[in-house]
Design a protein around this nucleic acid. Structure first.
Lengths: 127, 127
DNA sequence: CATATGAATCGAGGAAATACGATACGATGA
DNA sequence: TCATCGTATCGTATTTCCTCGATTCATATG
């Protein structure tokens, strides 16, 4: 009989009860629209990092540059699986690669990647 | 008639052709086993960050503490959706909450979260 | 040019994450 | 205590992601 969960109107009336001048607060909240590009870029990076296999690859590349077949051993996974992970890491800007003969060598793109990994580790430590 | 893609043996023989002493390299690669806990913790954090809505929530919390109904307006999404996102962010240790009356107020848990967001932004900038 | 080899791409099936209505919970106040 | 309201959880339909065999591509070598 009442309004359903899905109506954002519920949120509006809630704010109207919460503030003396709700209009201003609502306008402020609605203005929090980080540029689509920014959010999408961050999302790409974090999605690429949010996978156990890919975190293991980065952990290996932290030690030294590796070619594809070496990472196959690190992950103990078939070639196509490893190649797919590497593509995602590259698209996110987390690793770079160079070709030498028939081999592709992968390395971490930037020290910022180390920082990301360390920060995530630190955050999860005290949860 | 030949070995298939899925056999990791392929990778082993590749390394045997690549190195004079492949055994040592293989042993080194296999030893790259970051502790299960470490990887899982990082994975949780990055998975939580790898979602557009949740990035927008963090962007809002960067400005000020918000209660649930305010974040409903930021995301323009139904209440249950917002609550689910907030739970994930909490479980990952990215936000904390306090209750005041019937309201739950959310805030960013640690400045490390700002650093994560900024680093991801910087990385994706030059891809 | 034919063959071998390391890597990249494609496509289908399965697994995991997400969205959201329905419902339950906990605090407030009449 | 009953109604209201902000929030949390549940169940499930949908979407997205992942895996991996098959195939293709590129380079090297006989």
């Amino acid at each position: 009989m009442s309004k359903t969960d899905s109506s954002p109107d519920e949120a509006y009336s809630a704010l109207e009860r919460l503030y003396d001048d709700p209009e201003e607060r609502i306008a402020t909240l609605q203005d929090i629209r980080p540029s689509e590009q920014d959010v999408t870029g961050q999302e790409t990076v974090f999605k690429a990092l949010g996978n156990e296999d890919r975190l293991r690859v980065l952990s290996a590349l932290r030690e030294s540059e590796c070619c594809g077949c070496e990472l196959q051993i690190v992950l103990d996974a078939p070639q196509s699986t490893v190649a797919t992970h590497l593509r995602k890491l590259k698209e996110a800007g987390l690793v770079k690669s160079r070709k030498k003969g028939k081999w592709s060598y992968y390395r971490i793109a930037d020290t910022a990647v180390f920082e990301l990994l360390d920060l995530a580790h630190a955050i999860q430590e005290d949860v």
